[in-house]
Design a protein around this nucleic acid. Structure first.
Lengths: 188, 188
DNA sequence: GTCTATAAGTCGATAGAC
DNA sequence: GTCTATCGACTTATAGAC
């Protein structure tokens, strides 16, 4: 287990932030150069091509978000799990100017190679799979209510979260994510 | 009523398509030059700056979509209106490689001037307002079911549509939009 | 209106010195 | 590992001839 280069980590972290801010075509090695404090040529030492960098950014972001998601744990009631998930999505907003990295790259997908598309798809699928299980649990417990199959409801729900962070940033308000959660809450 | 320049219209139409495909930072005057068959310098005659072009692209797209939306008419039952709205959103996908122009620009919003942000906001608001009325009507008629205020449900619903076209393109399938419609259908 | 020519800058990427 | 230097291509935009 060799210690990862701190410079490499800095580049990757700033790349993640920049993608969430401006997207694939909206940031450059020069931006990273200014943020990290090394020349653009040095960045190529760690990440030969921009696509290499972006692919690793997806992995890094995905690992972090999915582990937070899985850290919510199995023991909680479904509605409590969903509340934590909503908060998790709220964190991606940062200072209010960022959206989900994979949502952003989904918008940029026609400019990206296939391996990145697959990595973004994997992130979507993992979220949808997790939400499916929560919805099933919530229906059993009587705290959540859906129409149709849980798989389909989970897809629509995840899409709503993605669209909601987009709208939250557009209107510079944080409130919109809760509207999504309300959608699947059972009336008592 | 002076006839608008056909060349100008061509530029604008291709700009709309390119934005829906690759976003603000993903297309250039050169792309338009190749598509329309005139030099990039000539495009500047019609649209002095790229932001001028994009702002007009939003207006053009918005006018077309909103008029189609309003053409659905007042006399239909709410669930029928919503089905037509879903189909309308399905059309934006085109050959399967495009998303809503305003959803795309919402992703690119941190690269854009304020007047474009306001135009994109206006498109979001118009859709949310229309969906709010449909949801109210559907609840009255007993064909649609929502939680909480219609305004909030409409925001979540529109976000779900936006996220759904994103996911539809990402996974190269058209089926995901119907999952969203199912979300608000009343069980009978 | 459309062109040529050009400006002034950015882009990702590579070679090679240190 | 990080640098300087450089490449070739691309970007938006303007000036001025036709």
């Amino acid at each position: 287990m060799n210690t990862p280069s701190p410079v490499r980590s800095q580049i990757l972290d700033h790349a993640v932030t920049l993608i969430m801010l401006r997207g694939y075509n909206g940031f450059s090695y020069r931006d990273l150069s200014n943020l990290v404090g090394i020349k653009t040529a040095s960045i190529h030492y760690y990440f030969p091509s921009k696509d290499d960098l972006v692919l690793e950014a997806v992995s890094s972001y995905s690992d972090e978000v999915l582990s937070s998601m899985n850290a919510i744990g199995d023991t909680l009631p479904a509605d409590a799990k969903l509340s934590k998930y909503t908060k998790l999505f709220g964190k991606t907003l940062g200072d209010g100017d960022q959206i989900c990295l994979c949502g952003m790259l989904a918008a940029d997908i026609e400019s990206l190679p296939d391996d990145i598309r697959q990595a973004v798809q994997a992130f979507f699928k993992a979220n949808e799979r997790w939400l499916t299980k929560v919805l099933i649990q919530g229906v059993e417990e009587g705290t959540l209510a859906i129409n149709g199959k849980p798989e389909n409801a989970a897809r629509a729900l995840f899409a709503a979260y993605q669209g909601s962070v987009l709208a939250s940033r557009l209107f510079k308000t944080k409130a919109r994510l809760e509207d999504v959660e309300t959608t699947v809450k059972a009336v008592r």
